[in-house]
Every structure is written in structure tokens, then in C-alpha cells.
């Protein structure tokens, strides 16, 4: 088992790399650039990183179980919080930079554009998960904590769906993410299914 504190610090630094690069690009520093339409590029990159971290978070459990490296589980909370971090920035760049904090335009978008409705629903569901991610809340909620945090499956589905609905023609990229998500969710269904079979087999 590796030194967990060191590992966590390393992973933390790596998770910040996209943020730092986007920050440099936003101000055209260090040869980085967001191109001709910087707001759209920033919005897209933050959305993509949010989704990537979300899927990575969901991959931790199966990877830990299949490899037997249970220390991987210790990274799950941090990855989940980074997903929240990037998605929150994605939302803020939409609301502040893209929409100029025009409440009427934002509310109209949330109501009228199905892909925004999906994204917003996903973000609202992420907030309680982020808040209750601390040890204190885990203890306080007990078994209900696990139930609550199953929301992450719904959030991931909404996130991929949101991605799929906003593309103009080329659905290849969101379909790749949908494929990865299917594998991650399929693994859990398979586990559940095979466990319940074992239990029924034993009780007979």
C-alpha cells in the first residue's frame, strides 16, 4: 500500500492541471489560448472535465474491486469533489461569461432548452452530495448516506444526456462517454444481480 497522504497530494495536483492550463489560456499566457471564441471554449472544456472526473469517480469502485487495490477507494471523494468543482465552474462560466448574469435569459434557458434543464438538474443534485461528502456528514447520515449518494448514477446519466443533446450533428464524442458510463453502470447491475442470485441460492 502506497503512502496515502503523498498519493493524495499528487492526485490533487494532477486534478488541478486542467484548471491551471485553462486559467493560463484565458489570459493568453504560457503559449496557451482559448481561440477565437474563448467563452465557448472555456465552457466546453470545463463541462468535459466535469464529466471526465464524474466518470473517473464512478470507475474507482470497480477498479478497486477488480484489482484488489482497495486503497484506490481513498481517492474517490477527492475525485468526486473535483468533478463538482469543474461542473460548478462550467455553470459559472455559462451564467457569468456567456449570459452576462442576465437572470431572465438564464431562467428562460433552464425552462426552454431541454439540455440546460438536464444540466441544471444534475448540478442541483450534485450540491447535496458535495455538502455531505465530509466524514461528519457520513457519520450523521449513517446508512442513509449511501442511499443519498446513489444519486450520482442519475447525475452521470443526466450529464451524458445533456452532452448528447447539445451537439449539432456529430454525436460520436458524447456516445463514447455514454459507452463508458454504460460499462460502469453495467458493472454495478451485474454485481447486484449476481449477488442476489448467490443469496437466493444460499437460502434455498
Amino acid at each position: 500500500m502506497p503512502n496515502i497522504r503523498l498519493l493524495k497530494a499528487l492526485v490533487f495536483a494532477v486534478c488541478l492541471v486542467p484548471f491551471v492550463l485553462l486559467g493560463l489560456a484565458a489570459f493568453n499566457l504560457a503559449g496557451q489560448s482559448l481561440g477565437a471564441n474563448p467563452i465557448e471554449e472555456l465552457l466546453h472544456q470545463l463541462g468535459l472535465w466535469g464529466l471526465r472526473f464524474l466518470l473517473l469517480t464512478l470507475a474507482i469502485t470497480p477498479l478497486g474491486q477488480l484489482s484488489g487495490k482497495t486503497w484506490l477507494l481513498k481517492l474517490r471523494r477527492m475525485l468526486g469533489l473535483f468533478s463538482f468543482f469543474y461542473i460548478l465552474l462550467h455553470f459559472l462560466s455559462y451564467a457569468i461569461l456567456d449570459q452576462g448574469l442576465s437572470y431572465t435569459a438564464i431562467i428562460e434557458d433552464i425552462i426552454e432548452r431541454p439540455y440546460i434543464t438536464l444540466g441544471m438538474t444534475a448540478l442541483l443534485m450534485l450540491i447535496p452530495l458535495a455538502i455531505t461528502s465530509t466524514n461528519g456528514w457520513m457519520r450523521r447520515l449513517g446508512r442513509r448516506w449511501k442511499k443519498l449518494h446513489r444519486l450520482v448514477y442519475v447525475i452521470a446519466i443526466l450529464g451524458v444526456w445533456h452532452f448528447f443533446w447539445q451537439v449539432k450533428l456529430d454525436t460520436r464524442e458524447p456516445l463514447i462517454y455514454a459507452g463508458i458510463l454504460s460499462v460502469l453502470l453495467g458493472y454495478r447491475l451485474w454485481l447486484k444481480f449476481s449477488k442476489s442470485r448467490q443469496i437466493t441460492a444460499k437460502s434455498q
Binding site: 484565458a26 482559448l34 477565437a36 471564441n37 474563448p38 467563452i39 465557448e40 472555456l42 461569461l97 456567456d98 449570459q99 452576462g100 442576465s102 435569459a105 428562460e108 434557458d109 426552454e112 432548452r113 431541454p114 439540455y115 443533446w165 447539445q166
Partner: peptide, 19 residues
């Protein structure tokens, strides 16, 4: 059907100019 046409982003305005 999927987005508003009421406003537009003028390319070249950078990060901090509204539509």
C-alpha cells in the same frame, strides 16, 4: 429548437463582453 437566437456573441470580443 435547442438554443435562443435572440442574442449573438461577436467573435473577437474576448472573455468579458456580453452577447
Amino acid at each position: 429548437p435547442r438554443w435562443s437566437q435572440a442574442r449573438e456573441r461577436l467573435i473577437g470580443n474576448g472573455l468579458f463582453v456580453a452577447k
